[in-house]
Amino acid sequence: NQASVVANQLIPINTALTLVMMRSEVVTPVGIPAEDIPRLVSMQVNRAVPLGTTLMPDMVRGYA
């Protein structure tokens, strides 16, 4: 089972991601792999991401 990136807090739209906003968790469906967390830092979300939501590739500008 692969860990995915999950929002550690509410992340408002257009917010640049920081390490404290994300955690890794084994979830279904699988989202962005946890090993990509360092790559996600400073990328912006293109929608509001509620606490506990799995980050999907289409939620992060420039990721996919």
Rank of each mutant, 00 (worst) to 15 (best):
N1C: 04
N1F: 13
N1L: 11
N1E: 11
Q2Y: 11
Q2K: 12
Q2M: 14
A3D: 05
A3R: 09
A3H: 13
S4V: 02
S4F: 03
S4N: 01
S4P: 00
S4Q: 02
V5Q: 01
V5D: 00
V5T: 09
V6F: 02
V6A: 03
V6D: 01
V6E: 01
V6K: 04
V6H: 02
V6T: 06
A7F: 02
A7K: 00
A7N: 02
A7V: 15
A7C: 03
A7S: 14
A7P: 01
N8Q: 10
N8M: 14
N8V: 15
N8C: 03
Q9D: 10
Q9F: 08
Q9A: 09
Q9M: 12
Q9W: 12
Q9I: 07
Q9E: 14
Q9V: 15
L10V: 09
L10W: 13
L10F: 08
I11G: 00
I11N: 01
I11T: 01
I11A: 00
P12V: 09
P12G: 06
P12H: 11
P12T: 14
P12N: 13
P12Y: 10
P12S: 11
P12R: 07
I13S: 10
I13D: 10
I13R: 14
I13A: 13
N14Q: 09
N14T: 04
N14A: 13
N14C: 04
N14D: 15
N14M: 09
N14I: 02
N14R: 07
T15S: 11
T15C: 03
T15W: 06
T15F: 06
T15E: 13
T15L: 05
A16D: 08
A16S: 09
A16M: 15
L17T: 01
L17C: 02
L17V: 04
L17H: 00
T18S: 06
T18R: 10
T18N: 08
T18L: 07
T18D: 07
L19K: 11
L19A: 06
L19C: 04
L19P: 09
V20P: 12
V20C: 03
M21Y: 11
M21C: 03
M21E: 02
M21G: 03
M21P: 01
M21Q: 06
M21W: 02
M22T: 02
M22H: 01
M22C: 03
M22L: 12
M22A: 00
M22S: 00
M22W: 02
R23P: 01
R23C: 03
R23F: 06
S24H: 08
S24D: 15
S24Q: 10
S24Y: 09
S24T: 15
S24M: 10
S24L: 13
S24N: 08
E25K: 13
E25M: 15
E25S: 08
V26T: 12
V26S: 13
V26K: 15
V26R: 07
V26M: 14
V26W: 12
V26Q: 14
V26G: 05
V27E: 03
V27Y: 02
V27F: 02
V27M: 07
T28W: 12
T28C: 03
T28M: 14
T28L: 14
P29C: 03
P29Q: 05
P29D: 05
P29L: 06
P29V: 06
P29F: 04
P29Y: 04
P29W: 04
V30H: 14
V30E: 05
G31F: 02
G31L: 01
G31I: 01
G31E: 00
G31D: 00
I32F: 03
P33A: 11
P33H: 12
P33D: 05
P33K: 13
P33L: 08
P33F: 07
P33V: 09
A34W: 07
A34C: 04
A34G: 12
A34K: 08
A34Y: 07
E35A: 09
E35V: 09
E35Q: 14
E35Y: 11
E35R: 15
D36R: 06
D36A: 14
D36V: 08
D36L: 11
D36P: 00
D36M: 13
I37C: 03
I37R: 08
P38K: 12
P38S: 14
P38H: 14
P38E: 12
P38A: 11
P38F: 14
P38G: 14
P38C: 04
P38I: 11
P38W: 09
R39N: 10
R39Q: 14
R39P: 03
L40K: 00
L40Y: 02
V41K: 05
V41L: 14
V41N: 05
V41P: 03
V41G: 03
S42G: 15
S42F: 12
S42Q: 06
M43Q: 11
M43C: 04
M43F: 12
M43E: 04
M43N: 06
Q44R: 10
Q44T: 07
Q44Y: 10
Q44A: 08
Q44P: 10
Q44N: 12
V45R: 00
V45I: 10
V45C: 03
V45L: 08
V45K: 00
N46T: 11
N46C: 04
N46Y: 09
N46Q: 12
N46H: 06
N46E: 09
N46L: 11
R47I: 07
R47A: 10
R47G: 08
R47Y: 13
A48I: 09
A48W: 15
A48Q: 14
A48Y: 12
V49H: 02
V49G: 01
V49F: 02
V49E: 02
P50I: 08
P50W: 11
P50M: 08
L51E: 14
L51R: 12
L51I: 14
L51T: 10
G52A: 09
G52L: 04
G52F: 05
G52D: 08
G52N: 15
T53K: 13
T53Q: 08
T53F: 13
T54F: 02
T54W: 02
L55V: 07
L55N: 00
L55K: 01
L55R: 00
L55T: 01
L55D: 01
M56Y: 08
M56P: 01
M56D: 05
M56L: 10
M56G: 04
M56K: 06
M56R: 11
P57L: 05
P57V: 06
P57Q: 05
P57C: 04
P57D: 05
P57R: 05
D58H: 08
D58C: 03
M59I: 05
M59K: 02
M59L: 05
V60C: 02
V60D: 01
V60E: 01
V60S: 01
V60G: 00
R61L: 08
R61T: 15
R61S: 12
G62T: 06
G62C: 04
G62N: 13
G62K: 08
G62A: 14
Y63H: 05
Y63N: 05
Y63P: 05
A64Q: 13
A64N: 08
A64I: 13
A64L: 11
